[in-house]
Amino acid sequence: MTGRYVGRRLLQVLPTVAGIVLVGFLLIHLAPGGPIIALAGDSGDEEYYAFMTAKFGLDRPLPEQLATYAGNVLRGDLGVSYIQGRPAIDVIAERLPATLLLAGTALVGSSVAGVALGAWAAARAHSIRDLAVTSAALVLYAAPVFWLGQLALLTLALRTGLFPVQGMTTAGGPETGLAWALDVARHLALPALVLASQEVAAVARLTRAGVLEELAADHVRTALAKGLSDRRVLVRHALRRALLPVVTVIGSRPGHLLAGTIVVEVVFGWPGLSRLLLTSVQTRDTPILLGIFLLVAATVVLANLVTDLVYGWLDPRIRYR
């Protein structure tokens, strides 16, 4: 991978980051009651208002306010949660690992399973198994994730007792070591599966379409004419090219995935960001909400960047342009 390619991609990220910060700034200023209420709550605490006014330069002209605000945000200073009285970033950081564990498991699992299923279906296009995969993907892609979660709870957890119903750990269970990890894994399985299902559907559909298109390509005929095995042609030749759009889609879905994570967390009582997010909506705890929004946006931007780099690795024509 050439350094110039990486550098160019990094440069392109900057305006996006600036835009996202600007959106947060705009929302705060458009909010009823103005920026001070949005940033410091409606407690009426004049001393705190004065402190926040100074901190964010709210008595200065708008461009200067924007600069101050952007500086604070980029340094990770999102203000103080006025419900908890602690820096917003600390409050968010506490809940983040659980959410990332759930989302990360689903992302990795769905990418692998989706690509495998899609390629498997495409290898026998229009067969029974292809029909089964395509229809399942169509239904899963349409089903709302909370509903899938509720159905999974009803059938797999409540009826059979195979899986725990709520939470991330068993109350009074092991708190360290392998036993703890296994306990978490057992709690993780069902929510991760539900969260992954829609992503699996999306990835499988796209992989299948891509592989089918590639299998019709001249270079695949060349590979077959060389005497390569079907499996090798499918995996090394067709799938490699078909992965290009798949990578794009996987890379463009973290926003979607994190939204799904919030919803699944509610269904399974998973102790991630969801509860914090919902209480913050009730209490209008803007620093927290803004923090989560910026965090998710940053994740999406980062994912796009990684996608582009992977893309360049998969397609030399882009790398050397």
Binding site: A259, R284, L289, A297
Partner: peptide
């Protein structure tokens, strides 16, 4: 830019405000 903007979280923030 609008493609990377997380709609769900933006909507939640707007609803809160």
């Amino acid at each position: 830019f609008f493609q990377v903007l997380p709609r769900f979280f933006l909507a939640i923030m707007a609803i809160a405000l």
